[in-house]
Amino acid sequence: MAHAQDGDRAAYHRLLQEITPYLRSLAARRHRDPSDVEDAVQDVLLTVHSIRQTYDPARPFAPWLVAIANRRFVDRLRRQSRRREREVALTPEHEAFCEPQTNLEAGRDRQELEGIVDNLPPAQRHAIRLLKLREMSLREAAVVSGMSVTSLKVNAHRALKKLKKLLVDRSEP
């Protein structure tokens, strides 16, 4: 590490290669999932890289490295624990369209909406299709349509206003 601090790239590269298996074994003691082990090792390596100037060459390297690794591992486990406390396991009841019939109705809704969009004036219809249905950015839609960004915004706003009115009128008895 002392050579790496002096700017010796080869020494730094060799150091990282040599400490990685050791860090992997330390991480495997704390984490069960292999991907968590690798993520933890990468986290430690990034930390070592970012604070390598704090290492004192007059002191042993191994305790410095182990202290950093242990802190990173504990931080990671705490984050995972907090995340698990907030998460809820999903079941089929959580699914928005768990019944096949509902999926068919969603398809009919989309067809109905596309039919209403077809009744819009051409510029509004084009703006809605590009910006909302194809989810293009304003710049992309401007290039494709040949309209200015301002014109697209105006046409999309007018189209949404008209669609809202049409949908409200359809839902009222």
Results as ranks from 00 to 15, higher is better:
residue 136 M to N: 14
residue 31 H to E: 09
residue 81 S to I: 01
residue 65 L to K: 03
residue 138 L to I: 11
residue 24 R to G: 07
residue 19 I to L: 05
residue 164 K to N: 12
residue 131 L to I: 14
residue 58 A to G: 15
residue 87 E to G: 00
residue 157 H to M: 13
residue 56 D to F: 07
residue 114 E to W: 03
residue 5 Q to C: 08
residue 168 V to S: 09
residue 112 E to K: 02
residue 84 R to F: 00
residue 89 A to E: 15
residue 63 P to D: 09
residue 55 Y to V: 12
residue 47 T to M: 12
residue 31 H to Y: 15
residue 144 V to Y: 05
residue 60 P to S: 11
residue 115 G to E: 05
residue 123 A to M: 06
residue 130 L to I: 12
residue 57 P to I: 10
residue 149 V to D: 10
residue 79 R to K: 13
residue 143 V to M: 03
residue 90 L to W: 02
residue 69 A to L: 05
residue 151 S to P: 00
residue 11 A to N: 04
residue 87 E to V: 05
residue 53 Q to P: 00
residue 172 E to M: 12
residue 65 L to A: 05
residue 157 H to E: 11
residue 55 Y to D: 06
residue 163 L to W: 05
residue 68 I to N: 04
residue 127 A to T: 10
residue 43 D to T: 05
residue 29 R to T: 13
residue 120 L to G: 04
residue 63 P to E: 12
residue 118 D to H: 06
residue 128 I to F: 10
residue 51 I to Y: 06
residue 156 A to I: 00
residue 101 Q to W: 09
residue 94 H to L: 04
residue 89 A to N: 09
residue 76 R to E: 11
residue 50 S to V: 05
residue 2 A to M: 11
residue 147 M to K: 08
residue 15 L to K: 01
residue 156 A to W: 02
residue 25 S to I: 06
residue 86 R to D: 02
residue 62 A to K: 15
residue 62 A to E: 08
residue 166 L to Y: 00
residue 16 L to M: 14
residue 51 I to E: 10
residue 58 A to K: 15
residue 7 G to C: 04
residue 89 A to D: 13
residue 56 D to Y: 06
residue 72 R to V: 14
residue 130 L to C: 14
residue 65 L to G: 04
residue 94 H to T: 08
residue 20 T to Q: 15
residue 29 R to I: 05
residue 44 V to R: 10
residue 167 L to Q: 11
residue 9 R to W: 05
residue 163 L to D: 09
residue 45 L to D: 02
residue 164 K to Y: 03
residue 109 D to G: 09
residue 12 Y to N: 08
residue 95 E to R: 13
residue 25 S to Y: 02
residue 42 Q to V: 04
residue 84 R to T: 13
residue 141 A to K: 13
residue 96 A to I: 08
